[in-house]
Simulated scan of single mutants.
Amino acid sequence: MNMFKELALAGTIAISMSASLNVAAAAEKLSVAHSTWIGYGALYIAKEKGFFEKAGLDVDLQIIEASSDAIAAMQGGQINIVASTMDNFALFSGNGADLAVLTALDESAGGDGIVAKKDIATVADLKGKSVAVQKGSVSQFLLAQALNTAGLKLEDVTAIDMKSGDAGAAFVAGSVDAAVTWQPWLSKAAATDFGKILADTSTMPGLIVDALAAKSDYANEHRKEMKAFVDAYFEGIDFMAKNPAEAHEIIARNLKMSNETLAGTLKDVRFFSKQDNAAFFSGDRSPGFELMSQAGEFYQKMGVLRSTPDVAKVVGIASELAK
Results as ranks from 00 to 15, higher is better:
R285T: 15
L266Y: 04
Q183V: 01
I197N: 09
I250G: 12
I251K: 05
D106Y: 12
E290I: 15
G236Q: 03
E235A: 13
A178Y: 02
F229I: 01
D156L: 04
A24V: 06
D87S: 12
G316C: 01
S139W: 14
A33T: 04
A109R: 00
V176I: 05
I71H: 10
D284G: 05
A252M: 02
A241I: 02
V230E: 07
A104Q: 12
A214F: 04
K127R: 15
K129G: 01
A19R: 15
F280I: 03
V176D: 01
G39K: 12
L105V: 03
K127S: 14
H222P: 00
F92C: 05
K224W: 00
Q78S: 05
V304S: 04
F141C: 11
Y44S: 14
A214H: 10
K313D: 10
W182M: 00
V157P: 12
Y218K: 06
S216F: 04
A100N: 11
A252K: 13
A322D: 12
E6P: 00
S273K: 08
G128P: 11
Q140S: 15
A116N: 05
Y233N: 03
N259Q: 14
V131E: 03
Q75L: 11
S216P: 02
S84M: 05
D268V: 05
A190K: 11
T203G: 10
N243R: 03
S187M: 06
V180N: 12
S286V: 06
E155D: 15
T265K: 00
L105H: 04
A211W: 14
S139P: 05
F51K: 01
A97V: 04
A90C: 02
K135F: 01
I250Y: 13
A219G: 08
S35M: 10
A318Q: 11
A247L: 13
A8S: 09
S18Q: 08
F141A: 14
A245T: 11
D60I: 08
D161E: 01
A109Y: 00
Q140A: 05
A189T: 07
V157G: 06
G76M: 03
A10Q: 12
M302Q: 15
N148A: 11
S84W: 11
A199H: 00
G113L: 01
G288E: 09
G303D: 14
T192W: 09
Q62E: 10
A199M: 02
M74R: 01
A190S: 08
K313P: 03
T149M: 07
K196F: 02
A70Q: 09
G236R: 05
E221N: 15
G136I: 02
M3D: 11
N259A: 15
M86C: 04
N277E: 13
A124Q: 09
A83R: 12
A132Q: 10
V315T: 08
L212A: 07
S35A: 09
D98G: 02
L9K: 08
E107L: 07
T158Q: 15
V209Y: 10
D177T: 04
A14F: 08
D125C: 12
I114Q: 08
A124R: 04
